[in-house]
């Protein structure tokens, strides 16, 4: 599998309930809680696009959009 490059980490703050699952299991500590207890991406440059935050988010609030794939419109 080719190495994926992050295009955007979309976090829906209205849906996030701040449970902290994504933060605990992120292998590169990209995510943190802000002062309102909502998840934010503080180090998106470290993201390795494993998408485990997206898959494990109970609020379906995270979407990892990569340069390749996702409908093919970002494909180079």
């Amino acid at each position: 599998m080719a190495k994926q490059k992050l295009k955007e980490l979309v976090i829906n703050g209205d849906w996030c309930k701040g449970c902290g699952i994504c933060i605990k299991f992120c292998p590169t500590q990209v995510l943190e809680l802000d002062r309102q207890d909502r998840c934010i991406a503080v180090r998106p440059e470290d993201c390795i696009c494993c998408k485990m935050c997206e898959l494990r988010c109970p609020d379906l609030a995270i979407e990892v959009i990569t340069e390749k794939g996702e409908g093919g419109d970002h494909e180079k």
Binding site: G18, E54, L55, C57, P58, D59, L60
Partner: peptide, 15 residues
Amino acid sequence: PHIWCPGCGHGIVLS
């Protein structure tokens, strides 16, 4: 946002 509590596993099952 859904009615499930923060951290509820049911959201992960839905996903």
